[in-house]
Design a protein around this nucleic acid. Structure first.
Lengths: 161, 161
DNA sequence: TTTGTGATGTTATCTCATAACACTCCGCCT
DNA sequence: AGGCGGAGTGTTATGAGATAACATCACAAA
């Protein structure tokens, strides 16, 4: 997925220290909420954070074991479901991939700008309160969750190639 | 998918005559554009129109043959890809289903209000030009296509149950 | 009529995701 | 300490969604 194209990109994955910090923060918050940051959950979140871009579930499964041993699918899917429920990760439906939440946030609506060239994404605050919310109001719908994903080219990929 | 709940809903599927008319219009337009409305494409579009709500690909596959014989998956997936490319159908990524376009439109961006109770959807004009477009502009992204799906409850389902 | 392009038929396989059930861990109550 | 209960995990198997690859066919343009 990443680096399908050859040119250079900014915004590489965070270093180990940053991952560690985000992981700690997540663990602290979960504990405060009475949830448990178990080994599987922590590992999956660490993989997502380290990747810094959307990752396929089966890539997480393959990378799960520190020793190279893959996980069983339910292990990872359960962790993903939990992380998503807690707002620590998001599923990108249009590409069936998962990404760590970058907006610090609890369970919140998110929107994504996805570069089809280099595979990176940018999470932006969801416009649920905006156009879509107005359309829903007009139609009498009560919105509970949204999937908002825009595909295109990031600034770097617009220039290059 | 439909009628998971028991109460009554408005907006049932269109009658055979309406399907026929929409099918004719699509065929005419495609011919004018130099495209071919083949049997498989026509059949898949007819199924989508008759359903009037999102349909899973494998349901289309199962219903494909008039005699009850299922189609082979590629037959239906190819037709869906074509119809989507021509703006006659849309994929709803968040539920992996397909729906006939109800905005008369060529290839256009669409947004959907999806009722998780009764399974119906409502296509609304895409707010690409709105919040999301502004977010993309601000971030320097060039958007090529969007996936905008809001889940919740339709007016009928908000009242009932 | 030839020829090339787009569409279809067919087989096989790949990817994505979850059902079901046994078992374990851990906090809590007594 | 003992034992209950709920959340989490391990494991097997399977269901659901989608596509690769290649042979064949239909059709309009040359």
């Amino acid at each position: 997925m990443a680096d399908a194209c050859q040119h250079h990109h900014h915004d590489g994955p965070p270093g180990a220290a940053e991952v560690e910090r985000a992981l700690d923060a997540a663990g602290t918050r979960l504990t405060a909420e009475g949830e448990r940051m178990t080994a599987a959950r922590s590992r999956v979140l660490a993989l997502l954070l380290a990747a810094g871009e959307p990752v396929k579930a089966y890539d997480l499964i393959a990378r799960f074991g520190e020793d190279g041993q893959p996980a069983k699918p339910p292990t990872v899917y359960r962790a993903l479901e939990f992380l998503e429920r807690k707002g620590l990760a998001h599923r990108i439906a249009s590409i069936s991939a998962y990404v760590a939440c970058t907006s610090g946030g609890r369970d919140h609506a998110a929107a994504f700008l996805i570069c089809d060239c280099c595979g990176t994404t940018r999470e932006v605050s969801s416009p649920v309160a905006g156009d879509l919310g107005r359309a829903a109001d007009a139609a009498g719908y009560a919105i509970e969750r949204t999937t908002i994903e825009a595909h295109g080219r990031c600034p770097a990929c617009r220039i290059a190639v």
